[in-house]
Simulated assay, not measured.
Amino acid sequence: MIRKCFLCEESTEKVFSTTWVLPGLLPTEIGFSICPKCGSVCQSPSVDFDDMMAFYSSIAVYTNPGRQELPSTAKIRDLDEQIQFIKRGIGNLPNSVLQIGSSDGYTLSRFRDAGIARVLGVEPGAASVSLAKRLYQVNCIHGSAETFETNENFELILMTHVLEHLYNPQTTLSKCYRMQQKVTEGFIYIEVPLMAKASSLCPGFFSFEHINYYTRDNLLKSLTDVGYSPVSVLEHFNSNLSPVIGILASTKVQHHYSEYQSCYVDNKQILLEYRQKEISYWQGCLDALLPNLSKSQRVFLWGAGIHTSQLVTNTNLLEIVKINGLTDTSPLKWGINQGDWLCQSPKDINWKIGDYVIISSYASEKEIFIALSWLRDIGVVTLCLHNRDI
């Protein structure tokens, strides 16, 4: 699927693309393109909307079994900051909040604990909707940002790490703005990964699930174009896996920021520099494992998902190593094909001494490694591809 610019709807210019082996989907060309007019970067070519929704609904998992469904320390810290940031920007916390992309409900539970009387989520993942109810007694509309409906009016709308996933983010922002016209003053808090200098971006920053990429300038423009007026901005570069930006905006007109200027040249250079860095990074990680892999009897990949796809896409793994299987702790993924492999439950594999497991995950590598002590106890070697904090 070829996409137009998500911000100004102009045709885009492809900078690079590769074939990705995706879980539950056929091998697909995934590329990253730039808008010659405004300089915004998006995923194009990409899978179509229905395939992406099928991925979210049946495959995507955003809670880690290694934490027994508990939020990470970073998540707790980030929520502490978001609540205080919004409270400071508004002056007080409002009475009602709607979160679009509410995941497992933890964020809404924290806002409720902070004193907000009415909380409601919108979440496309069926598993996450169930988790929100079971873990936090948070009710969610099971639907997408594009299709959900509600007759309620909310003073605050949250979209943390959602806009980068939407095929038509401006349509959803316009929908939010219209929903808040019956309140005296409505507020929206947006947080997204920040496309900064290539040297600041983590491995896998340009990913399958993120189809829109935001700088400080085009995120401000995305809000002002639909009627919101930004009132507060925060940016972090080192505290999360990738840089992030958060903006609190109001339905009341204000004049705090200058008009948008196109960043086409700078953003294209970021894409080109990042692509070279990405290939070098993944291949370097694999090369570091090769002395160990030469001793293996069988090799399995741990993690049916995006990082396994990136490992295969960005390295010569399949040319030099025979992969005997793919496994994951998530029952949602069992029985689903990713490339030539069928994902199995780890309990269904007849593990043998001398088997090797490559953990492909970047974000959850340490937690997965710790959780796999039972494999090491029976003589299976578990290898961390990225060796982050192990």
Score class of each variant (00 low, 15 high):
E365C: 06
D48F: 12
N337C: 10
Y281R: 06
S294G: 06
G24K: 10
V41Q: 00
R376V: 02
F111H: 05
E273N: 13
S280N: 15
V21E: 11
S232H: 07
V357G: 11
D51P: 14
Q254L: 11
E146Q: 15
L70E: 14
E278D: 08
K333H: 01
E9P: 05
L26T: 11
T329Y: 15
T18Q: 13
C202D: 04
C285H: 09
C140Q: 14
S242P: 06
E164K: 14
T171I: 04
I368E: 08
E146I: 09
S296Q: 12
D78S: 13
K75C: 06
G66S: 14
Q344R: 14
K87W: 13
R298A: 14
P346A: 05
L332D: 13
P291I: 05
F148D: 04
V162A: 10
K4Q: 06
L131Y: 09
Q181G: 07
L120M: 11
A54I: 13
V265Y: 09
I90A: 02
A145L: 14
T147F: 11
H307D: 01
L26C: 07
G325P: 09
M159D: 07
C42I: 11
N337Y: 11
F205C: 02
Q82V: 01
S33M: 13
C285L: 02
I86G: 00
H386M: 03
V321D: 04
P124Q: 04
C35M: 02
A117G: 01
W334N: 00
L25F: 12
S364L: 13
G335H: 12
P71G: 04
I359S: 03
D113Q: 15
E152S: 09
H161E: 15
T308N: 00
I83F: 10
F208V: 00
A304D: 06
E278N: 10
I270S: 01
I336Y: 03
R298K: 15
L131S: 02
T224Q: 13
A145R: 12
L311S: 01
T12D: 01
L194Y: 11
Q254V: 02
E123D: 11
T215E: 01
D113T: 10
A117E: 14
Q254T: 11
P230H: 05
E319L: 09
C35A: 03
K277G: 02
G143C: 10
P243C: 02
